[in-house]
Design a protein around this nucleic acid. Structure first.
Length: 260
DNA sequence: ATGCCAAACAGGGTTTGA
């Protein structure tokens, strides 16, 4: 089973790219972020025609997540628990049955958190704490779990082209990196880092200042695997060539293959 | 250091993003 995360930066603007990519891919589950669409306007028919089941959790204008899958999920849940005041559409989870048991896939769009001297940064850290608490509860089920998404976290200095440029940024703050490490400390495995410790494994390049041409990227889209999922990890990779397409998202797909 | 780029909403300029 191949599970992919991809921040598409607008489903309406990216539909042609997504359909082209879906026609070529062997992915089984695709977690999308920043669909920037309400559920009613999501182009589900075009995607269903290609053989995918579609589940969305959108809102007007920004944020929004979706899970596309070859098979229908047994269960879908929307929204990250822990704050009834939080109306951002940033989290959904789906449970799939396979021949060798269930797998739970969470699709997350973790808050950016910039600038750090505004309420956006504490919102990010609080969201990460809520994710941590949610995960503790799910881990008790001892299921294979994959948390796939745009984490807006640069885990380590070699996950960016120039670490000095990210000092003071919410994506690279010590508190941010620590919260990510705390998820790993619960027993989660970063799928990309489980297969390679190479530098330059980026998933995002800014639209500005020729970042793509200079390979001035960062690795912020991740797949964290519970122990039961990590034991089934076969491979993981980043589909970076998509960034060179016409009218691309600023993020590219990252994937993990599990032996289900 | 940041809005140089991009998308949404709306129908111009603001908000958001990383």
């Amino acid at each position: 089973m191949k599970i992919v995360t991809w921040n598409i930066n607008g489903i309406k603007a990216r539909l042609d790219n997504l359909l082209t990519w879906l026609k070529e891919t062997d992915a089984d589950v695709i977690c999308l972020q920043e669909i920037k669409s309400v559920d009613e306007n999501f182009p589900r028919l075009e995607i269903e025609t290609l053989g995918f089941h579609v589940e969305t959790h959108g809102q007007k204008g920004f944020n929004g997540v979706a899970i596309l899958s070859r098979t229908s999920p047994d269960e879908v849940l929307r929204g990250l628990p822990g704050d009834d005041e939080d109306d951002h559409a940033r989290f959904m989870e789906a449970v799939f049955s396979t021949a060798s048991g269930v797998v739970r896939v969470a699709c997350i769009y973790l808050p950016n958190g910039n600038p750090i001297d505004t309420p956006k940064f504490p919102y990010k850290l609080a969201w990460m704490k809520r994710l941590h608490i949610w995960l503790e509860g799910r881990l008790a089920l001892e299921e294979p779990i994959v948390i796939a998404g745009d984490y807006n976290v640069i885990p380590e200095p070699y996950d960016c082209y120039n670490a000095d440029a990210w000092l003071g940024d919410a994506l690279f703050q010590p508190e941010t990196r620590n919260a990510y490490r705390m998820l790993e400390n619960l027993g989660m495995t970063d799928a990309i880092r489980a297969v390679s410790d190479a530098p330059g494994l980026y998933t995002f390049w800014d639209y500005q200042a020729g970042a793509w041409q200079k390979n001035n990227g960062i690795r912020i889209d991740h797949l964290l695997l519970s122990p039961e999922a990590a034991s089934k990890l076969v491979s993981a990779d980043i589909d970076r060539q998509v960034r060179s397409w016409e009218k691309p998202s600023d993020h590219v797909p990252a994937a993990a293959v599990l032996a289900f």
